[in-house]
Amino acid sequence: MKNPVLNISSLVGVIVLAFAIPYFVEAFTVLNFTVYIIMAILSLSLAFVWGMGGIMVLGHSAFFGLGAYAYAIAAVNFGPGWEAVTLSMLVPATFAALLGYFMFYGRISDIYVGVITLAVTLILFNLINSTSGPQYKIGSAPIGGYNGITAVPTLSWPNGNFIDINGMFYLSVGLLILSYLFIRYYLSTRYGKVTVAIRENERRAELLGYNVAQSKLITFSIGGAIAGLAGCMFANWGSFVGPTIFGLVQSAQIIIWVIVGGRGTLIGPILSCIAIQWMTTQLGMQQVVNVGFVLGIVLTIFVLLVPSGLAPLLAKIPNVVRSRLNGKPKEDVALGSPAEEGQT
């Protein structure tokens, strides 16, 4: 996707399609698609941290949950304004920076980074779970333990108008596009190129003079901030936050979205997140097969048969079609280089 005309036309196409959707489907479907889009922001954040930065985070839901709780607590205390949105990104980013400082400057190996993040999110899950009772409150916001925080004040448009179902959908799509463009921009900068280089070969990056720990810390914190933004939107979507968003299931789902979509791509995890959630909803409407069972099969198929993921697979199709039409042998077909895929 290095053709700028193609990039811009694809972006315009996505925007037009997204803004047309509410005119053609029921409010319930718009509501569902809104949460898919919010989760796509979360998926995008892990695609950046893990797929581009090579930092294996098994407990990415920690930042999502912190963002949601930070927004909810701030919204209850200060009202649902820009302060609450800023805090929903700042709190998880700061938490990621603190955690990352000990992990990356402590030169903890990749697998342990994954395990530590998983442990952290489970600790947060248990911590929030154990805050039932009126004594657990921050300012005037009760944390609520297992019941979570209900009736979270939601955002309004700058003119003070209430954001309705369609408005929440548009806002989510807008934030997804902004997050995607921000990450694309970041990856095109010197710092972003180093982020990808570290994923490819940490030792070589270090021998060329790049501060690997610092770069990882920045990547991890940015990913935390974007996951926090998704958490903020999730709190706005349901007007509720509960400790299950820190849970193992939530963390596992994000990993599945990225693996199925394709590590090293940004579009893939967005598409796979939306597709898998849609599939989960559809499967949830029937009683024949268990949703988790089907998700497990999908993941296994992708890991075994399409290890590079959905986006690289889709990227190959035009080349294969072109080669068939031109009658070229398969070996001559450039099937989309990893570098190109990495820019997707």
Partner: peptide, 11 residues
Amino acid sequence: TQVPSLFEGLS
């Protein structure tokens, strides 16, 4: 380095 150490997936 002794064994070529490159950014393998990059151009």
